[in-house]
Every structure is written in C-alpha cells, then in structure tokens.
Amino acid sequence: MKYLLPLLVLLPLLGCLDDDDQLDPLRDVQFTLNYRATYGGDPLGIQRETYGYPTGDSLKVLLFQYYVSDLELLPADGDDAVRLAEIDLIRWMSAAEDATQQRTYLVPPGDYRGLRFGLGVKPSLNARDPSEFAANYVLNEAEFWGPSTRYVFAKIEANAMLEDDGRFDTGLSYHMGSDALYRTVSLEQPFTVGGNETPTLTLTADVLRALSGNGQTFDITSPDKQTVHGGNQEVATGIWNRLAGQFTLSVE
C-alpha cells in the first residue's frame, strides 16, 4: 500500500503521454567498448589453442570470466563520471567465441581521460540475493559460491598437460570473489567522444598475466594449487591481484 499515493499522483501524467511523445532528442553518442581476452598477448582461443606456462607445461583454457561493476568513463574536466553499466559479466567459455566481445553504450560527447570499473561484484550488489533479480540478469548466471553466500567474481579454468604425453588431463580451476577482494581499476587513456569520429576502446585482460606475472608465478604441478575455490588463499589472492593489475586500455 505504501506505493499507492505516489502512484496516484504520477500515473495520470504517465497515462496521458501521447503515442508520438518522445524523450528529449538524444545528444548522446554510441560508444563501443571491446573486451578482449589474450593469453601471453595472443587472442584467447577457448579450448582450441594450446598455451605455454612458465613451469614448462602447457594448457588449454576452458573458461575465463570476470564481473565488472560501476563501469564509468572519466571526463577530462573532472566532472562526475559517466556510468556505462552498473554490473556486467564478461565471459569466454566456448571455442566458437571470438577473443573480443563488444558492448555498446550511449555516452555524452566530450573529452575523457580514461575509464574506471570495479573488478568483481560491488559490495552493495554482493549483499543481495539472486532471487531479487530477473532470472536472465547477469547476477543470475549461476555464479554463486553457495545457497547463502554470494557471487564468484572471476574464474579461470583450464586443462593442463603436465607430462609430455599429449593428454591435457590435469584440471586447473581458480574461482575468486569476496568483498575483501573487490578492486577498483582505473585506466588513463585520453579520448574524445563525438566530433568527426568516435574511437573504440579496447579493454584487454591477459590470462597468462593473471596466472603468472610481475615476476610472480605458482607451480601448477602442485596438487594443492590446481583447484583453488577459496581454500588456498595465497594462490587465489595472488591470481586476483595480478588479474586486477594487468588490464590495459587502448584507443583506436
């Protein structure tokens, strides 16, 4: 009943819109953001490509995904950030998928100095139950830790060949996510929307650099480092920190 009064006030106005009424003409410009996945700089090919790992082993990636929260463009003049999306799930899980996925947004024309997002599900959403959202919403993609816990922020899964026998028979599975791991990623790269040509931005994430980068790596031949779903915090936190720190932004 508590919504009755405001609805009584607002609905006559809503109900009397003419069919040909329009919102204000959109001055916003269509803007494309590419999400690109690579492995050691090469386009990521789920299952179909074989990749090397610093231990000398090789692997095939089965799944790479991460949530982004509060994806925003940063105006060059210091104005408030322009929100592109509150939450999105970026996922590669099929051999048929291209290494680059595209999202389009409408944004105000202007000069921007870069892009910012939260890696993971922001705490305010991470506290909410999936049943609160539509079944086909990105927070209902069955990426839950369990029935009473919340979202898995990122996953990397692969099958590794640890002996030179042609068998990719060692599963590697890294699932990460908690409020404590949530990170804000800011990438500076000036660009202008509008004018003669609006550029396309490409946000690249490299799986190898998440697994092994910045002089850090871990031994995938060690059984306790092959399946990490929260149990081996050292491995999980290491992967997460490297993932958060390796994004690059390019303007084309």
Binding site: E157, L172, S173
Partner: peptide
C-alpha cells in the same frame, strides 16, 4: 578427454 570439466577430478 581434453574437454573434461576442470572441476571433475
């Protein structure tokens, strides 16, 4: 099989 789920072990 090389496409066996990494979570089946």
């Amino acid at each position: 099989a090389e496409n066996r789920s990494a979570n089946v072990h």
